[in-house]
Amino acid sequence: MNTIRFGHHWAATTGGIMALVALTASGCGHDTAGTPTGVANVPAATATPALTASGAPTGSTVTCGSGTSAPDAAHTASDSPTPEGISRSLHQIGWWGGMSITVRRATVNRGGALTLDVTYANLGDQAASPSATATIRTASKSIETTSTVPEIPGGGNAPGTITADLADTSCDLSAVLDNVALIYGGPADNQTTIPLNPATSVDSVAPRTVPLTTHMAQDQIQIDPSGATITPSYVAGERNKTTVAVKIKVTCGSSCAAGGYNVDREEFSLRAPDGSTVTADTRSPYCCDALYPETVSDSARNILVFVVASPVSGKYTLSYNNKQLTDAGTLPAVADLAL
């Protein structure tokens, strides 16, 4: 599980509160005990100066939703006041649906209007748009979001925004952000949780790649796995499932049968260290090949995807079983993959 931690420092600001009661001869006197007369139950002043864009008091007051005011102080060194609320700089990174998602800034206004500035990075080699199905979680509820979802070229990145209405009128906006997280996926999925509190770790699993240099053959059919990418499954309901995507090159040399062979993804399987075995999934970009003498198939789409139990660690065995060759007495091809 990939975790990212950031320091959380508290910075205090001060505001003066001054109550001045002017007593005039015609308005108020004192009783013999020294208590002002003509003034009943005078409350303590609770107003705070409002802030300009630079953070300086304007001389007006800001009243919090509770009916009292409190300093609009930055709780962290990354918080900056705005005329309407606060803005927090962040660098929280999570992964979801083939994208790296970096939350760079969170802005919340009085009343709870939240805007997240994010950067999406497309980890694949095909153009794609990031998922728009994100939610905001607070201490008490989940809230739907609205997202900009630009199409991003393979290997590229693009900015985006995510907005939500927290419907929160708390005066301490830094504390509000401290209890908010951006969530991708539901309870039955491999969720990604990106907190807006920089002191709280991101809960997400980064994809990882494993170079492979193994070789396998069944008679004239040669198969060379050249690498694997290991990623949590982002399919709904596949919590605790991981995808292993194996890139392969398939060849048949000069001695290949003139009539050729068909190679299908259903002929590939992957056995886990516990002995469980799965065949290549239909979500594999690779489907099939027709092999003839001197055929070399090495497309970027030659990727077999296997859906296995999490976590992925240890020795896995990749097998290729061409039934035509097996029926003729040739053993299936096998190769061990250290994942």
Score class of each variant (00 low, 15 high):
M1T: 09
N2H: 11
T3R: 09
R5N: 07
H9Y: 07
H9I: 06
H9P: 01
T13G: 14
T14D: 12
A22G: 15
A25K: 15
S26R: 11
G27L: 10
C28E: 06
G29N: 05
P36R: 09
G38D: 03
G38L: 08
A40C: 05
A40R: 13
N41S: 12
V42K: 10
V42Q: 14
V42S: 12
A44M: 14
T48N: 12
L51E: 14
T52I: 01
T52D: 15
S54C: 08
G55L: 10
G55A: 08
A56W: 03
P57S: 05
P57Y: 08
S60K: 12
S66G: 11
G67V: 03
S69E: 05
T76I: 13
T76G: 15
T82A: 01
P83F: 03
P83L: 09
I86M: 11
H91Q: 01
Q92S: 08
Q92T: 02
I93F: 03
G98N: 04
A106S: 11
N109W: 06
L116T: 03
L116A: 01
D125H: 10
S131L: 06
A132T: 12
A132L: 01
R137N: 07
K141H: 09
S142F: 00
I143F: 00
T146M: 01
S147D: 00
S147F: 01
V149G: 02
P150Y: 00
T161K: 14
I162W: 00
A164W: 07
D165M: 04
T169I: 06
S170P: 05
L173T: 02
V176M: 04
N179R: 11
N179M: 04
V180A: 07
A181K: 08
A181E: 14
G186A: 12
P187W: 05
A188S: 14
T192N: 00
P195M: 13
P195V: 12
N197P: 00
P198C: 10
S201L: 04
V202M: 02
D203L: 08
S204I: 05
S204Y: 01
T209K: 11
P211G: 10
M216H: 00
I221D: 07
D224S: 13
P225Y: 08
P225G: 08
S226A: 14
A228E: 09
T229G: 04
T229W: 03
Y234N: 15
G237P: 10
R239E: 12
K249Y: 03
K249Q: 10
V250L: 13
C252P: 03
S254Q: 07
S254C: 00
S255F: 09
G259S: 15
G259H: 13
D264V: 10
D264E: 11
R265K: 13
E266S: 15
P273K: 04
D274G: 05
S276F: 01
S276W: 00
S276L: 01
T279C: 05
R283Y: 00
S284Y: 06
P285H: 07
Y286K: 06
Y286R: 04
C287I: 09
C287Y: 11
A290T: 12
L291C: 05
Y292E: 04
P293Q: 09
T295W: 09
V296G: 05
R301D: 14
N302D: 15
I303Q: 11
F306I: 08
V307H: 03
V308P: 10
S310D: 15
Y320T: 02
Y320S: 02
N321F: 03
N321G: 06
N321P: 03
N321E: 04
Q324I: 10
T326Q: 10
A328D: 13
T330L: 11
A338Y: 10
